[in-house]
Amino acid sequence: MSEKSAKDGARSAKPIHYAERYPTYPLLMSICSSSTGVFKLFDPVIQKEYTVKNSSTLVPSNDCFQMLLFAKHGWVLVMGGDKYMYAANPFTGERIDLPEMPQYGNQFDGISFSSAPNCPDCTVCCIHKLRNIGRTELLYVLMWRPGDEHWTKEDIGDETQFRTAYSNPVFYHGEFYCLGTRGNLGVFNPDNMTWRVLDKPEPVVDGDPMTGEQHCQLLEFRDDLFAIFRPHDSMPLYQEGCYMDS
């Protein structure tokens, strides 16, 4: 076997062993703006890109900008313009149009859903936390559940120094966990509409960075939460925290 064949064999074996350990893993998705109903999937394990044609769900519009917001359970949330959002499953062809969002409803720091949008127990949750000197601190929450004809808006007072990062919340053990710009966590309970900032984990980032000063992501993997930080002007990862389930 040549050196090239050996390397090719090693590369092909890697995704097989990975798939045996993790039957499903995420793919990166992007909408093709130039072609109606066409999107691309990138497999980070084997570093291969796929083009998928599906005209019934993801239909780019010439009238407004569309953005992929969140994806899980085979579904994606797509923002069309400033007020319209829909959930689509490009593999089954299902699509659910959500109600028109309130004024400035798209100015949230993160959005996610608890389960597949076609499930009756699904909750779509948008969160934004304001911090203003000399004014009441507020957490703004928008929620939608299947069957709702409009979004539910809730303003919750919060006097803590917590500032939400530009990162989608993670639905974890029945609650939405939100990453702060310093690496600590805030938790929103959609059942009783309450908000709390956790004492632990303690902040892992020094100072008091503003929202958007760095790339931040909160992720769940095998029932643990991970926070990843990277400054905009830096290539390597800046800080990584692991939040173990207690």
Rank of each mutant, 00 (worst) to 15 (best):
G74M: 03
Q47D: 01
W75L: 03
E154C: 08
T136G: 03
G105M: 03
R145F: 07
G110A: 14
L139Y: 02
E94K: 15
T194Q: 00
L225W: 07
R196F: 00
P99Q: 07
F91G: 15
C32E: 13
G37M: 08
A10N: 06
K40L: 11
M193Y: 04
M143P: 02
E175F: 02
D245P: 05
L219Q: 03
L27Y: 12
C242F: 13
C64P: 00
S55W: 11
N54I: 05
G241H: 11
G174C: 05
G183R: 07
G110H: 05
I16G: 02
L69E: 10
P26K: 03
P169H: 06
R11W: 06
T194V: 05
P102N: 06
R230Q: 15
L58D: 11
L219S: 04
H73L: 02
Y86Q: 10
N54R: 09
R182F: 09
G105K: 00
K72D: 03
A88M: 12
E100C: 05
G183E: 13
G212L: 13
R196H: 00
H150N: 11
D8I: 13
Y25P: 05
M210L: 11
Q214H: 14
L138A: 01
S30E: 09
V45R: 01
G186C: 12
G207N: 11
D245E: 15
Q239H: 13
V170E: 10
F39P: 04
G81Y: 07
W75V: 00
C178Y: 05
K4S: 10
V124E: 03
K129I: 08
D109L: 07
R230K: 15
G134H: 01
Q107C: 11
G180L: 12
M193E: 04
N168D: 10
M101D: 05
L77Q: 01
R163S: 10
G74H: 01
K129M: 07
M101N: 01
D155F: 09
F171Y: 14
S30T: 13
G9P: 01
E94H: 15
F171S: 04
P117M: 04
N118I: 10
V170F: 04
G74C: 03
A13H: 08
F188Y: 15
P201V: 06
H128I: 02
E240N: 08
C125W: 03
Q66Y: 05
E94V: 15
E175P: 00
D82K: 08
A71I: 00
E159D: 13
V124S: 02
A165Q: 01
E49Q: 09
M101V: 06
R182S: 14
Y243N: 07
R182M: 13
R11D: 07
E154F: 06
S33W: 08
F226R: 02
N106P: 00
N168L: 05
D199C: 02
D8H: 10
G110V: 15
C32D: 15
T36H: 09
G174T: 06
L142F: 06
Q47A: 03
Q214I: 10
F42P: 03
S56Y: 14
S2R: 11
Q239G: 09
A10V: 04
N62F: 07
T24D: 07
G80V: 01
E154I: 14
G80S: 08
T160S: 15
R163A: 09
G147R: 14
A19G: 14
P15C: 13
Q66E: 14
L237F: 13
A165H: 00
M67S: 14
S112Y: 08
E100S: 07
V197W: 00
G180V: 11
Y84M: 12
R135Y: 03
E3G: 05
D155G: 01
